[in-house]
């Protein structure tokens, strides 16, 4: 009889553990980064309203009200392999500005990058794929000015087909590109397979 009692206790324990793991897994699965809807047409910036370009100045913070982002910015370059640097993974709420490109508001495409998640969970640009054309992005600069941009499109690209020209290429107007990871997480490489890119143009 005591063996049966032990058996039932074991069954109860296994059941509770199983339920807990399933619950946790379902919660995590439902919090995967949102995928872009594909709205808008990625590509070269369309001519927006005529806004005089700003002089070069380092950006210090980015705000994206539609997804609740309000983050400090640090300057980033490239790593030893020539790949775009990202802010330290232990600072998942910080975003980066690609310092070899234009500064936000200056003529050319300014590039911001931030983590979609860290080992601990969602990071600064987790909801970037949720943005839609018409949403706004505001970048505060060290000179006290704020450069505002309107989202034209949001798209996802496999990392081996990254749209280098559209992101970093020369432009005659002030644009903004915001990058994070997306798609499936490849555990063997420890990386997401896609990049999510937001294309935005400057507005007054």
């Amino acid at each position: 009889m005591s063996r049966d009692r032990f058996g039932w206790a074991l069954v109860a324990l296994l059941g509770a553990l199983g339920l807990g793991m399933v619950g946790t897994g379902v919660t995590v699965l439902s919090s995967n980064p949102p995928r872009p809807s594909g709205a808008g047409t990625p590509g070269p910036a369309r001519p927006g309203p005529a806004v005089p370009p700003l002089p070069r100045a380092d950006p210090v913070a980015v705000s994206i009200p539609a997804i609740g982002v309000d983050a400090p910015l640090v300057a980033v370059g490239v790593d030893d392999r020539g790949t775009l640097e990202v802010p330290p993974v232990d600072k998942p709420t910080v975003a980066g500005w690609y310092r070899h490109g234009a500064s936000p508001g200056e003529t050319g495409n300014a590039v911001l990058v931030g983590h979609v998640d860290s080992a601990a969970g969602p990071a600064v640009f987790f909801d970037l794929g949720r943005l839609r054309p018409g949403d706004t992005v505001r970048v505060s600069r060290v000179d006290g000015r704020v450069a505002s941009f309107v989202v034209e499109s949001v798209a996802s690209y496999p990392k081996d087909r990254f749209p280098t020209d559209e992101v970093y290429g020369p432009s005659t107007s002030a644009g903004l590109r915001v990058i994070t990871c997306g798609g499936r997480f490849d555990r063997s490489s420890g990386n997401y397979v896609d990049n999510v890119v937001v294309f935005a143009t400057r507005i007054p």
Partner: peptide
């Protein structure tokens, strides 16, 4: 423009991985 190579490694997978937990559960 001379640019970085490829895309950006901007994620650590902390927002995913529920599949393994569901299977084990």
């Amino acid at each position: 423009a001379v640019t970085p190579i490829g895309g950006a490694p901007a994620g650590a997978g902390g927002g995913t991985g529920g599949g393994g937990s569901v299977a084990a559960g």
